[in-house]
Structure formats: C-alpha cells, structure tokens
Design a protein around this nucleic acid. Structure first.
Length: 574
DNA sequence: GAAGAAATAAACAGAT
DNA sequence: AATCTGTTTATTTCTT
C-alpha cells in the first residue's frame, strides 16, 4: 500500500473539504460493462468435414486478409467479387491445406483483423445469398458450404467478441458500447445485416468525390474505371445505388473503420508502453480527443476556474493514477497519499502545459515540488525567490494565494532536513540533500507484501508498472540535471531493490560517491550549512533514486522541461 | 481510533 | 519601517 508509487495510484480521494469541486477520477473510468457471454457456439452440426472446411476457409481468409493488409486496405484484389470487399473465394479457401485452427488464427490475427475478416466473410455470404437466391432465404436452404460459412462466421464472431471483451477488460480498448458492440451483435446474425441500415446519401460533389480517384471508383471492391466525374456519378448511381448490397457494404465499411479505430487505439497504447519501457517521453499527451482511455484516470472533473479557455486546453493525462486533487482557491488542504513519492517529474513532464495554464492544484506535496524545482535548476540550487518563481511559472494555481503557499514553501524548506540552505556569496540558496530526501520516503516499495503479491499475481501489474514507470521517469528526469551518472548496475540494483538495507545502502553509496547527491555542487558557496533536525524521520527508504540514469541520459530531454528551464528568467519577481 | 504526514496559519527574529 | 527570509509552533485534515 505504501509503495510510494503504488500509493499514488490511489490518489483518488478528493480531499475536498471546501466544497470546491475536486478533481476526482471522473466517472468514465472505463466503466464498461462487459457483456459477459459471447454467446454460445451453436455448432452442434459440426461434422468433421464442416470443421475442416471452416478451418481451411479461415486459414485462407486469414492469409488473404493479411496479404490485403500488407498491400493496403483499398486494394481490392479479387475481380470476380466486385460488389464487396470480399476477396476470399470459396474455391481458393477450399484449396488451401489445413494448417491453422480457428484458435490459432485467433492468436495470429489481431481483433481488428479478425473482425475485418469476419466482415469479409459476411459480405461474401451476402453476396452469394444475393446472387444465388433472390429473396427469401432461409438458413436451412443454404448449401453445406454456406452452412459451414455461417458457422464459421458465428464462431469467428464469438472469438472476436471475446477478444474485444478481453481487451476491454484490460482497458486496452475503449469501450464503445454503442457502436462496436452493437455492430458486432448485429453482425452475429447475418440476416439482420440486410435491410437495417439506411444508408446515407451519396453526396455528389462537383469537383471531387471521396469515392472517386485516379479514374477509378473507390467503392470497396469496385475499381470500375470512370473517365470523368460525370461518368463516375452515373456509375455510382447505377452500380452502387441504395440496395441491400450497397447497404451491406456500407456497413462493412463502417465496421472496418471502427476496427481500425480500435486498432489505432491499441497501437497507440502499445507505442506508449514501448516508449515508457524505453524511458522515453510517452506519447500520451498528444491531442487525442477521445481519451484512448486506457487510463482509468481522472480527468479533472470540475475546473473551478475553467482554465481560461484557450489557455489550458490540455487535459492532464495524469498517468497511471488518478488524482483528485482538491483544488480550488484559497486555503485548501490537500492531502495526497503520494507524499514524497510522486513521480513528479514524469507527471510534470506530461502535464506541464496543463498545470501551467489550468488553475488546478498540482497533486504534489510542497516538498516534492520544491525538490523538483531545485533539481531542475542548472546548478541544482535555487534561492527562495527562484523557487517562488518556479512555482508561479509552472503552476497557474500558485499564481494565486501567494501568501499561503509561499509560507508553506518556506515552512517546508525549513522543516525538512532534505532541504539544505547554503550561504552563497550573493545570498543563500537552497539545495536538496537527496539522501535525506530519499530517507524520508516510505520504503514500502521493497518489502511490501502486498506489492510482492501484486507482482507475483500480476494483478496489480498494470498500476505497478505504471507507477514504476512514473517513478522511473521521475528519477531519471531528476538525474538529467545531474552531471553524474549512475552505473547501470547500480541502477538495476536500485530498481530491483531487494531489501531495505540493500537499497538504502546502494543509495547511500551512490550519493556518497559524490555523484548523485545534488546536495553540494561545491562551487562558490559553502559557508554555513545549517543542519536541521528532521522532525519526521522515518524508515530509510528504498525508493529508486536514480534508475537507469545512464540510459536516460542518452535520451532526448523532454522538450518542455528543457524549454521551461531555458526560458527561465532567472530573477523575475512576481 | 491512533499515529503520522502534510497543509495551513501564525508568531517571531534576523537581514536587507 | 517595511519587507523578505527563515525558524518554529500549533492546528487541522487526511491517510494508513
């Protein structure tokens, strides 16, 4: 519980005593309901032959699909099936050897691919149905192939649904309760495909048409050559008029789009995880309108002072944990479980712009903020006034209530042993004694049974991982300013810290090596260093101090951090 | 409910 | 004298 990072993930409780709307984890939270069952395989009629047929078809379809994916979605491939995007002729499917079971295929294909495959088969079904029998078609009348197809469809749909549900459970895929699931459910019954959607009007624009390009009709699977727009319009009206086929194709296309969106979300997620893993700047803050919502995090619920419109448009992607800062103006006590442990650098890096513009109380303790400010400075030392400036520069929130928070800053500087005042030639500056700072942090990271349990069970892996990443980001960011490096071995030691002693000793060593301790850059100052007695001296910690510093060093700096640092007017009074 | 941590408030002193 | 800086104490609120 008290894993620092883990505790951050819990920062959900609004300490919202003043009745000010707090930032709490907003409703959304991915509260998706999962349709529990994906339906049952109604495959009672599955003789071996049928099964084989299905598998072969699936395999072939998968191949086709993958090929098609490789060559681009638009390339139609099959000529004979010009009405639909289907490119899986039954004959071909029959020819291929059976090498893949549906289950294997499920593993091979991503859900979107499966879905697209499904859709292709559905469309094929439709096409066959439409061409061979004009109207009233009952399933019973279908030939064995079609029966098999239908079973295949159902089976694959179920697989697909399972996939999506799984993804949703894992939070990998945004809940699209309406669109996706609906379409899937509808898709489950091929009959419903036919007349349901009322298709859109093709808008015929004069100059260009989205369905017309390079002299071809871009209707899925069509590719009819049209010399000019007029001819194309004619073709469009003739060949792609409002009928069942067009409707079905349109539906298919809709689903393709939906699946691609899901796929995009997934791939974004993956990219993010990759970058996080590599300790690069997460790509999260990109202006993704729809929160890809992996994060169950909080979106600021009520910005009491709506971040002056254009000023603060960026939603904080409070990664991996939700804060519900209390926030508002005036004296507000906010209490975070994060204490010192906030991966502040990471969070700040990601939401820098947000905090700069939105009048939202940052979910960090004063101590961590001060430390960050100091460590971020070129010399890792700041005067009180510079600290003030950092606060006001970085946080819109601190542009108000100056009396309150400035007092708090001073209070914290004095109170905490980790802040060391150093008399400089031109006054006094504040530095951070990282060792002390680390000492203050609750060590639970290491020995916490719950943590271990989580790690083992993997249940808490998501949050743990996220917080770990955040911690990594923080520590590595801090280190960016440090001229010294941590050896990877030391880093890994820290990372894995196996016990309090080990960890703390590691930290101590590192720091005493003169490397990491930002405490003293023995430069111009050093006259009197007031030693303070930390009021709350606790467990020595085990917080990963500076993980992977070496690695991080080779990586580009977070731009905004850098920017901020550089455009930092050293002495601007407020 | 107790302990601890953090925020807040305020008194006070020394320096500028 | 006023303000800034720094220290300290007390209280409140919140988390664990």
């Amino acid at each position: 519980m008290m894993v620092e990072s883990a505790s951050e993930t819990i920062r959900t409780t609004p300490s919202n005593q003043n009745g000010v709307s707090s930032l709490s984890s907003q409703s959304d939270g991915g509260g998706g309901r999962e349709g529990g069952s994906n339906g049952d395989t109604n495959g009672e009629i599955s003789p071996v032959d049928l099964l084989h047929l299905q598998q072969q078809q699936a395999l072939q379809a998968a191949r086709q699909f993958l090929l098609q994916q490789a060559s681009g979605l638009n390339s139609p491939g099959g000529n004979e099936v010009k009405q639909s995007p289907v490119q899986v002729p039954v004959s071909m499917a029959m020819m291929s050897p059976q090498m893949i079971t549906p289950q294997q295929m499920q593993q091979i294909l991503s859900p979107p691919q499966l879905q697209a495959l499904l859709q292709q088969q559905q469309a094929l079904m439709l096409q066959q149905v439409n061409t061979h029998t004009h109207t009233h078609i009952h399933t019973k009348q279908l030939g064995s192939k079609q029966l098999a197809f239908q079973q295949q469809l159902i089976q694959m749909q179920q697989l697909q649904q399972q996939h999506i549900l799984n993804l949703q459970r894992q939070g990998l895929v945004p809940m699209q309760p309406t669109a996706t699931m609906q379409s899937l459910q509808q898709g489950t019954c091929t009959h419903t495909l036919l007349p349901s959607v009322s298709p859109h009007s093709h808008e015929e624009h004069a100059g260009s048409h989205p369905l017309y390009g390079h002299g071809e009709c871009k209707w899925p699977g069509c590719e009819a050559l049209c010399e000019d727009m007029g001819q194309f319009i004619k073709h469009l009206n003739n060949e792609h008029a409002l009928d069942d086929r067009s409707t079905a194709q349109c539906r298919v296309q809709m689903q393709v789009v939906q699946q691609l969106e899901i796929q995009l979300a997934k791939e974004s997620e993956r990219l993010q995880a990759m970058m996080a893993h590599l300790h690069m700047r997460p790509s999260e803050p990109k202006p993704f309108n729809q929160p890809v919502s992996t994060h169950h995090d909080a979106y600021p619920e009520g910005l009491p002072h709506p971040p002056t419109s254009a000023a603060a448009p960026i939603t904080p992607l409070l990664h991996s944990h939700s804060h519900s800062h209390t926030h508002g103006v005036g004296p507000i006590r906010r209490r975070n479980s994060d204490k010192y442990c906030t991966p502040i650098a990471s969070e700040l890096a990601q939401n820098c712009e947000f905090y700069k513009n939105a009048d939202v109380r940052p979910p960090f303790t004063y101590a961590s903020l001060i430390r960050h400010a100091i460590l971020e400075s070129p010399d890792r030392q700041l005067t009180l006034n510079e600290i003030y400036n950092w606060f006001t520069r970085k946080f819109a929130y601190f542009r108000r209530n100056t009396a309150t928070w400035k007092n708090a800053v001073r209070h914290n500087l004095s109170l905490h042993k980790c802040f060391v005042r150093v008399e400089n030639v031109k006054g006094a500056v504040w530095t951070v004694d990282e060792v002390e700072y680390q000492k203050r942090r609750p060590p639970k990271m290491t020995g916490s049974p719950t943590l271990v349990k989580n790690m083992i069970s993997g249940l808490g892996f998501g949050s743990l991982n996220a917080s770990y990443q955040a911690a990594l980001a923080e520590s590595s960011l801090s280190l960016l300013n440090s001229p010294s490096l941590l050896t990877p071995s030391a880093a890994s030691l820290n990372m894995l810290h196996v016990g309090h002693d080990d960890v703390s000793s590691t930290v101590e060593q590192v720091n005493s090596n003169g490397s990491c301790s930002p405490t003293l850059s023995p430069q111009q100052y050093s006259h009197q260093v007031h030693v303070k007695e930390e009021p709350t001296e606790l467990e020595e910690d085990s917080r990963p101090v500076s993980l992977l510093a070496g690695v991080t060093h080779s990586l580009p700096l977070p731009s905004d951090e850098r920017d901020l640092e550089e455009d930092l007017p050293t002495e601007e009074l407020e």
